[in-house]
Design a protein around this nucleic acid. Structure first.
Lengths: 191, 191, 191, 191
DNA sequence: CATGAATGAGGCTTCATTCAT
DNA sequence: TATGAATGAAGCCTCATTCAT
């Protein structure tokens, strides 16, 4: 007989993260989540309204953590956009390394509940987009469709993390992504 | 007496493609596929061993088409690497439009590793990597880690397709990706 | 393009006998029967109205053959009832040896279509019962319920055939059954 | 919270027994069993892995009961063999009344050979054979092939139960079988 | 007559959710 | 609050039967 226990909520979330990251939404049974979390099946319904909401909470969770990390890294809405972009990329990669499950989950809601992008997700996208726009305004960047580019970046990170060789280190990956984004494959591009 | 009709197989595949493109695997009922294909529920089982295999066949089909498209578009191991890259991107985008939910299945271990689809995936990555390397040799591109870049590209495409606004058209996306990859955000980059 | 072919009908019957003898009615698919018989699935419906009727025809077939054998052995409705009973038993055993599948099938309609005993089956039972009654009239036998005994005899034969050691020979089994029926386990019984 | 209830398991088993006794395996729907047992369809799957296993459990149950009955009825390895044989017959008949469709399942290779049921069968046969041998030693019986006779008896019981008129009562059948086995058709046989 | 592709009713099984304890 | 037994809607698949060729 306890009060709703925040720690237990975390345990459920963690278990769900692992499972949802491995298999698509419908292949994960709530019973497994419960078992993995070491709680009863019914307990999940105390902390979450249903399977779908658990999933959504998980994605939200990921983005919230990510945004928190971005904040910690002092990505400012002023100053060099290039520096800000680098910081964001570094944070994204770091996040993917630290929470591979969450990262994998956030890949998309493909297979999961409706693509009603979570608030946090769109926050991230917006942050990216604004950074890009700022770069454009400041004549650091040139991009006719920053909204598209913003959309691409998370998937770009994800790809490397997911399929890249295990030997990749965080720093190397980050550097490569930065380079790729900043100058593309262009041979002439000046640093 | 009628023979197992390759054309009917195509009809089922086409119906399945449409449905699986709209909704994830578990949300598509075989009955719908049958109705859409204009055949009876049982007929599907004449042409495919089960739901999973139908989906797998679809993916296979998709990859086959992808490879076919890449071939058709004269992505040769000679000539401009830039042109080759553009052709590959166009094919990828086209493919992503046709099979938006493909990624989910490719991750499910249905069929296990070494499945045709995963083989196809690495083939695709290799084709990308080689194109990049050729570009570098030909001094069209500059990239210290073409193997990483090759890994990124499919995810890049996928991101836009998944999260991009519905209004995006295939051509526009392709053009944007080409631009991004070729010159990055670099303002000075010459065309 | 042929006329209904009696030989083909036999092939189907033979295939069905083998299959129905091995597995219960519902576990045998008509497709298997067709394959085993080397005919098309639809062909069965030319010779039989349906699965149930095929099964019934099979049982009938068995009893018909059995009765035919009994006739051949000149089991008369006159003279020694004991001799008649022996002849019947010998015929039953012989039949079980020669057509194990049919014999097995006739074990019962358990699992098969309604126990509406076929005409042939009741003929056999009647023949047995009449022989017993004759024996009683002739003061050869003593049995307060010949109708029950008649019912028992086929099952008795079947048991030995089915579960008895493979090494059993027809003659030995027959002799044993005759002895058992005629004098039971009674030690004092005179021959 | 309720625990997996042994009593509920019994209810399901009882319902299944009733239904499987009336109709063969494939003609009994699990939904009926559930309804009859007063539980939900899914509940069955809490107590049994599937339909087949439910049936198998039933057979097991039956054999266990059979053995239990044989024990209760003091079929000892000592004392009158005649009394022992009568007790066994009575138990067999009783069992046959309760599980008329049991034979079919025992023949299906569901569960494969060496299943508990076939072990139980040979145990039963052995018990019969030993009883017969004891009777012979004690000069109660005379039988040159008790192993054959032992094999016959279950089939004998089964025959009457399956084909005998519905009006037969357990006691009458038992009495008849006892009589038949003990003195056969011999008119002179003394009691 | 012969065939086997096509059909769809029917049944087993799964699993999110509820609720008695 | 915590549990897991219970539920039943929903969906995959089987297979007897039909019928176009």
């Amino acid at each position: 007989m306890q009060k709703p226990n925040e720690q237990k909520r975390r345990r459920i979330l963690a278990a769900a993260a692992g499972l949802f990251a491995e298999r698509p939404f419908h292949d994960v049974r709530l019973e497994e989540v419960a078992a993995q979390a070491g709680v009863g099946k019914g307990t999940i319904y105390i902390y979450f309204p249903g399977k779908e909401e658990l999933y959504l909470a998980l994605v939200d969770e990921g983005f919230t953590q990510l945004v928190a990390q971005l904040s910690e890294r002092h990505i400012q809405a002023q100053g060099s956009a290039r520096a800000a972009l680098r910081a964001i990329l570094a944070a994204l990669v770091h996040f993917a390394v630290e929470f591979p499950h969450l990262a994998e989950l956030m890949r998309s809601n493909a297979g999961g509940p409706g693509t009603r992008s979570s608030k946090a997700r769109s926050e991230l996208t917006q942050m990216l987009e604004e950074t890009l726009r700022r770069g454009i305004r400041r004549r650091e960047f040139s991009d006719p469709h920053p909204e598209l580019t913003a959309l691409c970046i998370p998937g770009l990170v994800r790809s490397v993390m997911l399929f890249g060789p295990r030997t990749l280190d965080e720093r190397g990956v980050t550097r490569h992504l930065v380079r790729l984004l900043e100058r593309g494959l262009n041979r002439e591009a000046a640093r």
